Amino acid sequence: MKGLPRGSFDVIVNKHNANKYTKQFGYWQHVVAMIYAQLSGASSLRELQAGFNGHVTHHYHLGASAIKKSTLADANNQRKDAVFVDVVQLLMQKASRSVRQQSQEWLCLLDSTPIFLKGREFDRWTEESKTRHTQGLKLHVLYDTKAEVPTWQSITAPNVNDVTKAWDVPLHKGAIYVFDKGYCDYGWWRDIDLAEAQFVTRFKCNAGVSIEKELPIEVADKGVVISDQIVRFKHKHTRAKCKLHYERPLRRVTVMREDKATPLVLATNDLTSSAREIAQRYKERWGIELFFKWIKQHLKIKSFFGRSENAVRIQLLTALIAYLLVALHKQTHHLKATLWECLCLIRATLFQRKELDDHREQKRRREEQRMYQFQIGLFT
């Protein structure tokens, strides 16, 4: 929990005036209990209550106290998620800042994943917004490949188009944004270019472009790269949004795929990097799929403690908070282990204080050595 300073958390709570109507069970106690649920793998509120209250001697160091499952259930259902959203944003900035300063290339992956919610109580608020494939919510994430942490998130209904939320993604100078063709919006591509950032994505099959220049293919890339071209869009929009049309030249790189017969047609505003580098950047988009798989396998976002929309959102946000705290722990202590190994270690020693344990072990060894000096040797 050192990754989330109490002072910074209190600033967020005061900003929203969130503790105005709370008595004993404040927001800090709430977030500590929900982080414990994520890290311990508790399967129900009853198990959460028993496990957390079983370590009553450690509550003082956490600034918490014993919890009741009914109180926690009410808090999840009634409290707004604004505090949790700001905490996630604070930890995202903290986790990616140091790595971003050390790295020359800042590669960001953008995608979304469905959160399936169907059944009793869920149907009351998910039926209206469901799509043909998804009923529940959708988690949108911008993922930093160097820091291995998300840097932006949003939770929406599944019928919200991915490219609609793309306009909310913060754009940074010098960053490289990688996304699939579901984010095909030429006006948004233009905004990325104006922010002095780069993007790598895929052209749609019906994209009307004219070829301006054929670029040479390196000898080493001829087995992979089919063509490398500078292109422009043929047509300009005649609608009111014509000012958002992408008018600058683009790079169209066509590469072979090992697992499919059809080639991959990539679009980018990077006119200087090699075709192989551009293809490799798009290949690294698989990293965000692995992130979604990781949090769904190792954190608590498949089954939920509450069935209201508010409870589900809070549980999703605390899963991201738990992930970021584990990532910060790994960064702070310069651990070589994988994130999964770090989580296993934290889960196994959740209420142990390493410094105190080390001090006791050193004291025990000193006492053992002292007593050894007074022992009579059997063989001299």
Score class of each variant (00 low, 15 high):
5 P>W: 07
6 R>K: 15
7 G>D: 14
8 S>F: 12
11 V>Q: 15
21 Y>I: 03
29 Q>V: 04
31 V>E: 07
31 V>D: 04
35 I>S: 06
46 R>Q: 14
49 Q>L: 03
55 H>R: 13
55 H>L: 08
60 Y>Q: 12
60 Y>I: 08
65 S>N: 09
71 T>R: 05
71 T>A: 04
73 A>K: 05
75 A>K: 02
88 V>N: 01
93 Q>W: 00
93 Q>G: 15
99 V>K: 06
99 V>N: 01
101 Q>T: 05
102 Q>H: 09
106 W>N: 11
106 W>E: 07
106 W>A: 09
110 L>A: 08
119 G>R: 07
123 D>M: 06
124 R>G: 03
128 E>Y: 02
128 E>N: 09
129 S>E: 11
133 H>C: 04
135 Q>D: 11
136 G>C: 04
139 L>E: 05
143 Y>W: 15
146 K>C: 04
150 P>M: 02
150 P>A: 01
155 I>L: 01
155 I>N: 00
158 P>T: 06
162 D>G: 09
164 T>K: 14
165 K>H: 07
168 D>N: 14
169 V>R: 09
170 P>C: 11
176 I>C: 14
177 Y>E: 07
178 V>L: 10
180 D>T: 06
186 Y>T: 13
187 G>M: 06
188 W>R: 09
195 A>M: 10
198 Q>I: 02
200 V>E: 06
204 K>W: 06
206 N>I: 08
208 G>R: 12
211 I>M: 12
214 E>I: 07
217 I>D: 11
221 D>N: 14
225 V>G: 10
226 I>N: 00
226 I>H: 02
227 S>T: 09
230 I>R: 07
234 K>Y: 08
236 K>H: 14
238 T>E: 11
238 T>S: 12
242 C>L: 02
247 E>V: 10
250 L>E: 00
255 V>Q: 03
257 R>K: 09
263 P>A: 06
264 L>G: 08
265 V>I: 10
266 L>D: 00
267 A>V: 10
271 L>W: 03
277 E>S: 14
284 E>G: 04
286 W>G: 05
294 W>F: 15
295 I>P: 02
298 H>D: 09
299 L>D: 00
299 L>V: 02
309 E>M: 11
311 A>M: 04
313 R>T: 08
315 Q>Y: 07
317 L>T: 00
318 T>F: 03
321 I>D: 07
327 A>D: 08
328 L>M: 06
338 T>I: 09
341 E>D: 12
342 C>Y: 03
343 L>F: 11
345 L>Q: 10
352 Q>N: 14
355 E>A: 15
358 D>P: 00
363 K>I: 03
369 Q>C: 12
375 Q>E: 12
